[in-house]
Amino acid sequence: MSSPIVSITAPANPVEDFLRTDRMPHIWCPGCGIGTTVNCFTRALLESNTDLNKLSIVSGIGCTGRVAGYTNLDSFHTTHGRAIPFATGLKLASPDMTVVVYSGDGDLFAIGGNHLIHAARRNIDLKVICVNNLTYAMTGGQTGPATPLDVITATAPYGTYDPAFNLPYLVEAAGAVFVARWTTFHVKQLARSMAEMFKKKGFCFIEVVSPCPTLYQRRNKMGDGLDTMKFYKEMSKTKHGAPTNEVGLTKSGEIIVGKFVDRERPDFATMMNAHLQHELGDQYIQAEGPVCG
C-alpha cells in the first residue's frame, strides 16, 4: 500500500490515554458516529482539566452503552435503561465525583425514560450524553422513541406512524439546567459543549445526532455514514437558545443545533443539604462520601 506518513516524532493521539487500547478495535460499524463522540468527549475532558480519578462513566445497554467499556476510566456498563438510577446512587454516595451518563436514545428515552425525567426533575448532578442514532441499533434497527415519522425500521416495515420524542424539549420540561444538541459533524462545538457541561452543576443533557449507516440510513436509502455527515452539514442550523419545542427532528428536514438551555437551579444534593441543615441544625450530619466499615 502507499505509505501513510508516520512521523517518528508523532505524539500519541490524545484519545489514546482515555481508551482501553487492549480492547481495540471496537465493535462499532464503519461510518458509525459513536467513536466520533468519544473523541469529542476526551478532548472536552482535556480542555476542562477534569480530574480523571474523580470521574466515572455509566452506560446502559446498546451500541452507545459500549462506550463505558472502551474508556479507561472508572466505568460501569449497567442494565438496559438503568444507567441514570445507577449513576444517581453513585453520585450521592460519592459527591465529589463527576458522573457522566453515556448512552443511546432507546436506552435513555424508552426503557429508561422514567428514570431520565425524574433525575431531571430532581436535578441530580449528572452529565448525560445521549448519542441519538434514531433507532435501536444493537438489536437490528427497530423503531425507537426518537425514530422520526415515515421511517422504515425492522419493526416498521411500512414506515413509522408514531410520533417521536423531541429530546431537548422533553428534558427541558423535566427540569434539566443545561440542554444542547449537536451532530457528529459538529466535533469542535460538541467538544466545547461537553467541556462547558462538565463545569455546570445539575442535570445536564447533550443530544448528539449520529449516523447508523448499517441499519437506519441503509434501510431508508439515505446512503452511508459519510453521506449522513454531509447531510448533517447541509441541513444543520445553529440556533443557540432556540425554543426547544421548535427543534423536533424529522426524517429529512432541518436539524436545529446549539445550546438551547443554560439556567441555574440548585441541584438535588444542594437542596437536600440545605433543607436538612435548616430543619435539623446541628443534628444534621452530611454524608461525606465513601464510608464502609
Binding site: 435503561g81 438503568r82 444517581t88 446512587g89 450521592l92 422514567n114 425524574h118 437536600m272 462520601g289
Partner: peptide
C-alpha cells in the same frame, strides 16, 4: 443518604451505584 426513587427498578440499581461509590 436516603433517596426515594421513581420505581423499584431504579431503587434496586441506585443501591448498586452507591456501593461502587464506596458505601
Amino acid at each position: 443518604t436516603f433517596i426515594q426513587m421513581e420505581d423499584e427498578l431504579a431503587a434496586s440499581i441506585a443501591i448498586l451505584g452507591a456501593v461502587w461509590g464506596g458505601v
